[in-house]
Nucleic acid binder design. Structure first.
Lengths: 194, 194, 194, 194
DNA sequence: TATGAATGAGTTTTCATTCAT
DNA sequence: GATGAATGAAAACTCATTCAT
């Protein structure tokens, strides 16, 4: 049942992270959530940090697939922005945003985690880069900054917004911002291409 | 020597935060840095959290003054961007960015800190708002989003950039971005006003 | 203002004991209650324990006077019991019972206090002894036990009842018991003397 | 070896309580007494308070069995009183009285303990009630007060006597009182029934 | 007579991790 | 594969008390 147990541990980790945040995700808390023995964490993942990273990687990977599919369907920038807003709301509701925010923020004070979290960011940057290339093709904006750089800016802003949303849950969030952007986007699109 | 000791504690806290991050800033570590008795922290600040917050408030307040002066001297957007880049490098070198990043990120998993950190963000948003109002006066951008909202976006991005710079110190940073922006800014300024 | 300050400290101590019990009566808490500097406690009383003892002695002394006056007015045992019930209710309402209970109980785990608290018990035993001598004069009960011994039993029971009332405030208390005893007392008195 | 370690911890707790009282029964002191790691206390009992309560419950339970057996053998009140005196001396010698006194008294200033300690009192009241019912059957005393109420009085007095014996170890104790009572009891018994 | 600062020893509790079974 | 027991290090915080002023 090795595979089954691994999965169970990962699910319990994600659930604990969503409910209690990183500070509440101790080995004992995770084990209690999943009704298994804390020592299993070390048997399967070597350390708590590795488990946390694996959980983030899994959550990140799943969402990446979802975004990739959506992004590839979008032809114009207004479509893109609209679909991003929709998926982001899913992420918020499912708790995935909380997981990302907790772990990314937590990595700041746990230097062992930093580089590993950064690695997980890379495919997102690439996805953003491709989306930008396609939707800004021909725009004069690309004369100012490369798609890669714009992608980096986008992901950076995304993480900042997650951070703020975690600290001030009632503040205006990224979802609302994307909604508005979707309204301007046609004009913007025209302007940028014109 | 109340003032003297308070200052000493605050300085030791900032130094510890810069050197070891939030996770390393325990009462004992701070006291060791400043060579005083850990109990003094409670005598002067009541709790470790309050001390941490006071240290952040002080660092934030000092930098705010610096930015305010610089921003008020800038007439056009290109000047503004250029001066921001310069000060940001100072902040990086002095360790202030590390302090901010550690505490803002740390607040995510320490919910008691969240609201207090958010409060400290407010004057920065206001400063950004005024700078945007002045430098974008008459620009069509303001038809799409209010200065307040743009200020919020700016601060959010700033925090995201701090976060990323902490996790991947060698990645391209905000300072570089601002440098580039300073190059485009004249054109941008013209375009925006035109 | 020596006398004034001493009094102020004693009053703050009694107030703190009544409100927060012995565990809450730290030097700082007492000083906060009375708005004075904790170091004054040591200046005037030498140690916290001495202050606590002085407070108990004062409270005990005042109540002793009250009981003495009442007891001396009572001729028969039914009168005695009735008046005791009445005063006991005063003591409960004023918080004196709480002070006594906290300190007597607290002395169990603070051996320095034990002998000092016992000393304060002595005048109560004597008072009880005299009351018993007078109200049981001629009764065959005195053939079984000396007034001194009966007095000891009475005070012991009194302390036990205080203890229980502190632990289970809603349980049947000494006041109720004395009320009932007041009803039987005439019959008892007749029987004992007959 | 769960049972073995639990027992070891419980025994170390009782020993520490007997030797140093409640104030001396810190987690470290208990662990030192039993030569185990202080963290084991939390592993097995969750908190120091729970351990203390468990130790009291065990001691109380064992003694309750002993008293129950003795009480059930006693037919008349003089026999009852005599056997109670004998067992009480055992309790004194074994340190059980100290444990009870420390925890009951300590509960006064640790309100979390109060209700839990009161619960442990209940079976003692019931035992006393049954003993009183049997040995006072037919006595006119029962017209004045119910067996339940008399039992309550008895237990209250018992706790008061424990308290006093702890504070003034050399004072006349309950054992002596019971001895005397045993001498009067036949006469008393006759009188009460007659 | 009164204050504010400072100290050192103490408290309970939590944690990731290891290991024998 | 899985468990329960055990550990050592660390955490934040509170306290009575002292002392120079």
């Amino acid at each position: 049942m090795s595979a089954g147990t691994r999965t169970r541990i990962l699910e319990a980790t994600l659930a604990t992270l969503k409910e209690k945040g990183l500070a509440g995700a101790s080995t004992r808390a995770i084990a209690a959530t999943g009704s298994f023995n804390p020592a299993l964490i070390f048997y399967y993942f070597g350390s708590l940090n590795e488990l946390l990273l694996a959980a983030l990687a899994q959550s990140s990977g799943e969402r990446l697939d979802r975004y990739r599919a959506a992004v590839e369907d979008a032809e114009r920038i207004d479509e893109l922005v609209a679909v991003l807003g929709r998926i982001y709301r899913e992420d918020l509701a499912s708790g995935h945003i909380r997981v990302v925010s907790e772990l990314v923020a937590g990595s700041v004070s746990h230097p062992e985690l930093g580089p590993r979290v950064i690695e997980l960011m890379e495919p997102w940057i690439e996805l953003a880069e491709r989306a930008i290339e396609r939707s800004l093709a021909g725009s004069p904006i690309l004369e100012l900054a490369s798609p890669r750089r714009l992608a980096h800016v986008a992901v950076t802003f995304y993480l900042g917004a997650n951070l703020v949303s975690q600290l001030a849950p009632e503040s205006e969030d990224l979802a609302g911002l994307l909604d508005d952007a979707a309204r301007f986007a046609p004009a913007l699109d025209a302007a940028l291409r014109g």
